[in-house]
Design a protein around this nucleic acid. Structure first.
Ligand SMILES: [Mn+2]
Ligand SMILES: [Mn+2]
Ligand SMILES: [Mn+2]
Ligand SMILES: [Mn+2]
Lengths: 139, 139
DNA sequence: TTAGCATTTTAGCCTTGGCTAAATTCTCGG
DNA sequence: CCGAGAATTTAGCCAAGGCTAAAATGCTAA
């Protein structure tokens, strides 16, 4: 592997991580919203079948990101919680940065969902730096 | 597919589009640099085996993006050229925008390689708008 | 000219993320 | 309690993009 194609290696690795990041983020969201995440909720949110979700969850469990008993709800492990927190933070920074440029809410949501998996920490810091703080005052 | 999850737009489809974009872009680059693109060149540039390239090229030919005879060089079709041009333009805008924020060359190259596939035309226009023109003067 | 090296192709394997069909398990209203 | 409907799991299919091993083809230098 030459120095030139390191960037394509990163891209492939990013792809294998994207699914995990989106899933742990969504599981966290569901647990916060409604106390637990069910397979069916995930299928609805991602717009795929329950079978697809089931197989992805098997991988995430194998990778020690989630924990669940057969026919029961899904919860994040400590490792999963850590990834979810980082992913959510990254997602939010990218989204707010796009909004600050003037990207519409709808498009910012769509683009952030993809971009979030490809921003290095260096780029992320710069996105933060150039996002005006909202400094919302209490009314 | 509800309106809520359009943003998750079938990860697999997104990935197959990304591969096509990177390949036609690279083929165009090789044709410009050295008159033709060979399978081996692509394998070297992407850091994968020639077998992997061969299979991807079969798909691209099936999708009418490239054209080639057995054991000969690979060329873009008109459709492929169109995609390559758009991809190259997008790639360049993303790269220059990241550089203008202060992202290092190395990291900007890596991040642009991933981000380029996830920026809508709306976001792209705003990236352009906020990238200072280089206005390099002749010495 | 041709032998050997380089390139391309074929065969066959794997993992991931899609799907449908069907079996299993759970849960809740009557 | 119990059965129906909902949720989950299993089985089996597909395509894409990875790989190694080996066969086929192309090319060039001696
Ligand atoms: Mn996300
Ligand atoms: Mn995402
Ligand atoms: Mn590119
Ligand atoms: Mn790319």
């Amino acid at each position: 592997m030459t120095v030139k194609n390191v960037k394509f290696k990163r891209l492939r690795d990013a792809h294998t991580r994207e699914t995990a990041e989106d899933y742990v983020e969504m599981i966290q969201e569901l647990v916060t919203e409604q106390g637990e995440a069910r397979l069916t909720d995930l299928a609805h949110r991602f717009g795929v079948t329950s079978v697809t979700v089931h197989k992805i969850l098997a991988r995430l469990q194998r990778e020690n990101l989630i924990q669940s008993q057969p026919y029961r709800a899904i919860f994040l492990t400590d490792k999963g919680k850590k990834m979810a927190l980082q992913s959510r933070k990254r997602h939010e920074i990218v989204y707010q940065f796009l909004r600050s440029l003037g990207v519409s809410e709808k498009i910012a949501h769509i683009d952030a969902e993809g971009i979030e998996h490809h921003v290095s920490s260096e780029t992320l810091r710069l996105f933060e730096k150039f996002t005006p703080h909202s400094t919302k005052k209490k009314p």
